[in-house]
Amino acid sequence: MEHRDDIGSRLGMWVFIFTEILLFGGLFLVYAVMRSKYSPEFHQAALHLNTFIGALNTIVLLISSATVAMSVTAVQKGNNRFAVRFLLITLICAVIFLINKYFEWGHKISIGLYPGSDLMLTLNHGSVMFFSLYFFMTGLHMLHLIIGAVLLMVVTVRVQRISINRDRYVLLENSGLYWHLVDLIWIFLFPLLYLIT
């Protein structure tokens, strides 16, 4: 009989998630200090962000999180076909998120708002801090989202091939945990960046 430790496996994933929380936590600390220092500038700069796209991406991520959670339920019930469908919905949500981000960032870059641009040099220090934090935090979040999506693609194939099944599905659970972390970070990014006008 092979040796397996699913609880230990999940515990390891949680420890990794803690390091991720502290990584983003550090950035939120920078945000908090800069915001208390440049409150009016932050309010002014946040007007440039599109609340509608932000809200849409929030909903998309919430749905994707729910479908990952449901795919775990489906695998636990032995229904791999359902699980694959749920995972595909999640991946579609990830693509929708990235398309929205493409238009959002694309618009800002086209009007010359990006770190190190000529326009940024003319802005006051508070606005520069806001946009730098905006690009860095949403960029790092997007990187996590892409990694999570790649991970879920691998998982989807393995669920399809039944190498992830009702008896062993810890890889699906751990990838799900990573995906929920992506959702978790966005839950804080959205109000702090988009809704402070």
């Binding site: 999180s65 799900g176 929920h180 978790l184 839950i187 804080f188 959205f190």
Partner: peptide, 27 residues
Amino acid sequence: TALLIASFKAGIVMKYFMHLKFESSLF
């Protein structure tokens, strides 16, 4: 208010989506 609601949402995500409710107390 925004932060309080966000924290509440994060709590719900961790408790239900991340299965923390059904993990051992160690987690």
